[in-house]
């Protein structure tokens, strides 16, 4: 059933594109709404009839994966959910994948957020995606969520010397003193690894500037695609790896499944999103070709006149 659906939608989309290309050769212009329609079809079809592609982790993603994989059991990792619902489809899949990986390796996780809207997404991730796979893990012992604090870059700037000063309690108002995870953790300098998921300000960049560089703490970033190119200059000294957009998430998920087969049945939104991505990119490239044909034909005609 799925295969038939895939074939029919592919025929529809590519047939339409060929017709448009033919039209453009004839000098016909394409209305922008037609472009929107094609993009919608290219995205919707693979969601209805899932198309998956094999992903192989590139070095920038693999270095984050290896870091989590090779940390000794019982290390403390801080994961900061610095995003809002608008960024969530891109960033949440990687946050979920890395959280699972950390729990699987027996690391202790401190969850937090520099965005007010991140806290709700964080608790959603915890209750719906991350924790159901680990019923044996205990709150406050294996993981803790300290939630959101206002203050933008001021927050990392304070917790680099003292976490309690900014976060006297966790989200449920349990004092940090009484939480076992914080027995040996006073400041961010005592952490073994920090991953910031985000793409706005404050976000990954602030973690590099205010915690990674001054504190010498290894930082990994999971960013929305838009800002991924701005993260590359920090490689490899200031960040150890980058997960850029859905592609980064998909690569991490596939690497996680490859190394830990127990995750084979987990939900993989990153991998599933690569189907719509691929098809939509093909459609966009086709439209770039069509657009250029129309443009150059128009210019040649102007020259002739």
């Amino acid at each position: 059933m799925d295969n038939i659906g895939v074939i029919i939608s592919l025929i529809l989309i590519f047939g339409g594109l060929v017709a448009l290309f033919y039209g453009s050769l004839k000098g016909r212009e394409v209305d922008r709404r037609i472009i929107f329609l094609f993009i919608f079809l290219a995205v919707a079809a693979p969601i209805l009839f899932p198309m998956t592609f094999e992903e192989k982790a590139t070095q920038v993603v693999k270095s984050v994966f290896d870091k989590v994989e090779n940390l000794p059991e019982g290390s403390t990792v801080l994961l900061s959910f610095d995003f809002d619902p608008a960024m969530a489809p891109e960033v949440q899949p990687m946050a979920n994948a890395i959280s699972r990986h950390c729990l699987e390796k027996g690391h202790k996780i401190i969850f937090m957020s520099l965005w007010a809207t991140g806290q709700a997404l964080l608790s959603q991730s915890l209750s719906e995606s991350i924790l159901p796979g680990f019923p044996e893990k205990q709150n406050l012992v294996d993981y803790v969520s300290i939630g959101y604090k206002a203050g933008n870059e001021g927050v990392p700037n304070v917790i680099i010397t003292d976490i309690q000063k900014m976060f006297p309690t966790d989200v449920n108002s349990v004092p940090l003193d009484s939480i076992p995870i914080f027995d040996n953790i006073e400041s961010c300098k005592d952490l073994d690894f920090i991953v910031s998921f985000g793409g706005g300000k404050p976000g990954p960049k602030e973690w590099i500037l205010f915690v990674g560089d001054p504190g010498g703490v290894p930082i990994g970033v999971g960013v929305a695609a838009v800002v991924a190119p701005q993260m590359y200059p920090y490689l490899p000294d200031q960040v150890i790896g980058i997960l850029g957009g859905v592609k980064g998430a998909a690569e991490y998920e596939s690497e996680l499944i490859r190394v830990h087969p127990k995750f084979a049945d987990m939900d993989t939104p990153g991998l599933l999103m690569m189907g719509p991505q691929t098809l939509a990119h093909v459609v966009i490239m086709a439209f770039i070709v069509i657009g250029n044909v129309v443009f150059f034909r128009g210019r040649r005609r102007e020259k002739k006149e």
């Binding site: 993009i39 919608f40 969601i47 608008a86 489809p89 695609a225 838009v226 957009g245 719509p276 966009i284």
Partner: peptide, 28 residues
């Protein structure tokens, strides 16, 4: 950067369409 942006925007669209298909229409 532009290429990455396109990828990002499509991810957002995927998120919305998935919501419409799964949570609202329940066809997937």
């Amino acid at each position: 950067s532009f290429g990455y942006t396109v990828m990002g925007r499509i991810s957002l669209l995927v998120g919305r369409i998935t919501f419409l298909f799964r949570d609202w229409l329940e066809i997937i």
